[in-house]
């Protein structure tokens, strides 16, 4: 039996790496991948909790999270695609249209 706290620690570490990726990387696609990483970290803790609590709800939740993640990836990538068409770059620092 895997101790729940170890699963959670792994989840926390993966999540932190994802946060760092979002804040440090400048390629917008890598940023996006870091977000996926964070989502997976959350999924992991869900599974951990579900196992410890003998409950299936966490697992069902992951199912939904994965669907939402798929939808998000599709829409997000198409946004990146259309921004790339006009700006010819993937550098997130230049995606600054929404400023004062």
């Amino acid at each position: 039996m895997i101790p729940i706290s170890h699963v959670l620690v792994l989840s926390a570490l993966l999540f932190s790496i994802g946060v760092l990726g979002v804040m440090l990387r400048r390629n917008v696609i890598v940023v996006f991948m870091s977000i996926e990483l964070m989502l997976n970290a959350v999924n992991l803790s869900f599974v951990g909790f579900a196992r410890t609590m003998d409950d299936m709800t966490g697992v069902i939740f992951i199912f939904f999270i994965i669907v939402v993640a798929a939808a998000e990836a599709v829409v997000g990538l198409s946004i990146i695609l259309s921004i790339y068409r006009t700006r010819k770059t993937l550098n997130i620092d230049e995606f600054n249209l929404l400023k004062w």
């Binding site: 946060v19 979002v22 804040m23 997130i92 620092d93 600054n96 249209l97 929404l98 400023k99 004062w100």
Partner: peptide, 17 residues
């Protein structure tokens, strides 16, 4: 306050975290 709206996504993420 609008100076905070600099359009750089990562600074938003920074403030968010």
């Amino acid at each position: 306050l609008r100076l905070a709206q600099n359009g750089v996504l990562q600074s938003y993420a920074l403030i968010f975290s």
